[in-house]
């Protein structure tokens, strides 16, 4: 992890970055979301927004792990927090396809009557979860951008939250 102490108490702070990567396994998603909340708190994100940061980064990391797992990719999921005018979180996967298989959305399919095997159920729940992550992120985060996939890699979820003293913070 590359990090530097960032102290906003003395006026306009220097930009800082925290960057790490993790094996796409479920056990590490919690670590990522806890680091996100801690770095956000240290950066000065309002206490009332820290739960949102934790949930959103967790959702984005969950999505990345699901995308890697779905496609058998063992590459690391990359996470970056940038502290400048705003607190920015970027979560990048390495899955180039946008979606592995079609799905009709959970609202439509939730009541279907066809029987499935347990493994199929689990896979379907994973697919649902990947879709729900984006629904949650869209409802939760005001400043959300999902880019990719492109020729160089997978998708990146970028999110930002206001910091004290930044122009955008005055809006909140």
């Amino acid at each position: 992890m590359n990090g530097s102490k960032h102290d906003r108490a003395g006026g306009r702070a220097e930009p800082a970055t925290v960057r790490f990567a993790f094996t796409p396994a479920a056990a590490y998603v919690r670590a990522a979301r806890l680091v996100a909340a801690d770095v956000a708190a240290h950066a000065g994100v309002a206490t009332g927004l820290l739960d949102e940061v934790r949930q959103a980064v967790g959702e984005a990391c969950t999505r990345a792990v699901l995308r890697h797992r779905d496609r058998g990719i063992e590459d690391l999921v990359r996470v970056e927090f940038a502290i400048g005018d705003r607190f920015v979180a970027r979560i990048t996967d390495n899955a180039q396809e946008l979606r592995a298989r079609p799905s009709g959305g959970f609202g439509v399919n939730a009541g279907r009557g066809d029987a499935r095997a347990n493994d199929h159920d689990t896979l379907e729940e994973d697919t649902l979860s990947e879709e729900i992550t984006l629904i949650v992120l869209g409802g939760l985060v005001e400043d959300l951008v999902v880019t990719g996939p492109d020729a160089n890699g997978g998708t990146t979820v970028s999110m930002s939250w206001p910091l004290p003293g930044s122009g955008s913070a005055a809006d909140h």
Binding site: Q55, G58, E59, T62, F106, A110, E125, D126, L128, S129, I132, T133, I135, V136
Partner: peptide, 9 residues
């Protein structure tokens, strides 16, 4: 998180 919501569905 959303995985939990998937389990509920």
């Amino acid at each position: 998180d959303s995985t939990g919501l998937g389990v509920l569905i």
